[in-house]
Each structure stands twice: as structure tokens, then as C-alpha cells.
Simulated assay, not measured.
Amino acid sequence: MEPDTAYMALEAPVLRLQKNDRVQIVVSANAPELAAPFNGGVGSYRVGDDGSVSTTVDRSAAGYIVDQTGAIDFPILGKMQVEGRTLDQVREMVRGQLVAKEYINNPTVKVELLNLKISVMGAVGGQQVLQVPEGRITLLEAINQAGGLAVVADPQAVLVIREENGLRRKIVNDIESRSIFDSEAYYLQQNDIVYVEPKMAVNTPREQRNRAYIGFGMGMFAFAISLFALFK
């Protein structure tokens, strides 16, 4: 990339739910007791001394798992097809059914993806799995959070391995090129794997010791040959 030059970046794509995703759906209403039965996957609710009902949202709760048919099993409403839908679409679907079936007249529905995680591997400062509570992360941000590129990293061979519709594919990126801002992998998706290839093979400690022994042995052999030639 050229210094002091502005480059256009792609707009962040909208995340769509996939099989095995874990999604949290919180329903609220003016009368909390009406919403409580629909919040079985978000924590717990309690009844106060005055009869009021309040919901406690727990991010560590299991939420709802998108099964292999692309559906979640939502309390009272039953099976709901959510695979391929955005979080906004799921929110409107839940809200629409609550109103249409006259459970709640004016509900508020919040939908959140709980398993937005990115694995960063290869020639980086620290290989790890990143949790992304903000709901959005770029390829450059993920590398930075993993400790940046290692000395042996090849910035022209940063791979993003992505699974979509049951198929896994590899997207090659050059993060030193302006093309990185046009890459479909610039904004990462849930369960993406980022692999930074090294420029050269990195020797393990055992391989380094073996190379040292071989070098020492060859040096001693050459020294012996020199002595033999000297005193011959």
C-alpha cells in the first residue's frame, strides 16, 4: 500500500446464522410476566413480593443451538427456521409471531450471536481462539489481537479458511496490498480460521540440536583431515 493514500473498504457484510451457531434471544414486554415464558434460554426469572416478574439475562447460558435442519426450538413458538437469516430477520420473525398469536401486543426482541469466534494460527505472536462479543472483526484486527505477525511470517500468504453451506474453502490474502480492503475475507465470519504461512520452515528445538551436532561433527572431521595432511 502507498503511504498517505486513502483506500475504500468494503462495507461489513451482515452475518447470517449457520448450523451449530448458538444464538441468544431475549423477549421483553411492558408486563414482564408475559415475556418470562419466552426467555427459557437466556437465564432465569423471578417473582417479586409485589407479584412483578423480572428476567435475568445470563451470557453464559446455553442459548438456542441451530440444529442440523437449520432450526431452533423456541419456547411455546416451537421450531423456527433460522439458518441463512440475519439477526435482524430472526428478531422480526420472533416478534411477528408473538404479536400474530396474541401472546404479547408490543414485544421487544433482542437477538445476539454467542459463538462468534475466530481461530488464528501459524506465524503469529500467539496462536489463539478469539471471542468477538462486538459482533464484527476484520482480518487485520484478528492478527493484531493474536500478537501480530511473527518475524518469519509471509504477509502475502495470509489464509482464511471458511466453511459455508457445508463446503470449506481457502481465501488467500496479501495484507501488504491494497487488495486486502476488497477481499471477501477482510471482515471475518463466525468460525473462520486465519492461518499465516511462514516464509520458511521453522526448525523445532530437536531439529536445531541435530543441526548443531551435525555441524560440530563435520567441523571435527575437517579438522582431523587437516591434521592428517599436515603430518603426512
Rank of each mutant, 00 (worst) to 15 (best):
V111W: 00
R211K: 12
Y103Q: 11
A222D: 02
L113S: 07
S179M: 12
G126L: 13
F74M: 01
E164G: 06
I143Y: 09
N203L: 14
T56L: 03
V132C: 00
L139F: 06
D21F: 10
G43L: 04
L15T: 15
V53D: 08
R178Y: 04
M80D: 02
Q156N: 15
P133A: 09
I104V: 01
M220N: 00
E112C: 05
F221V: 12
P13E: 03
G122Y: 05
E184V: 11
I118N: 02
V172S: 15
P198G: 07
V152R: 14
L230V: 11
A35I: 10
A12W: 09
Y186V: 15
G215K: 01
D50G: 13
V57W: 02
G43E: 08
V158L: 07
K79A: 09
I175Y: 06
M8H: 14
A150M: 04
A222S: 07
R209I: 15
P3W: 02
N105W: 11
N30T: 13
S177R: 11
R178N: 13
E92N: 13
V94G: 02
P107M: 03
Y186N: 10
N39G: 09
I143T: 07
Y213H: 08
L188M: 08
V172I: 15
Q24E: 14
Y213R: 14
P13S: 03
A31K: 07
L15N: 14
P133M: 01
E207G: 02
P13L: 06
K117R: 08
N105G: 14
V194T: 00
A153H: 09
T86W: 01
V202C: 07
D21I: 13
G51S: 02
T56N: 02
G78L: 03
D50Q: 03
A9S: 15
Q208R: 09
Q189R: 14
S52T: 15
L116F: 12
A71W: 04
F221L: 00
T138C: 06
G217K: 01
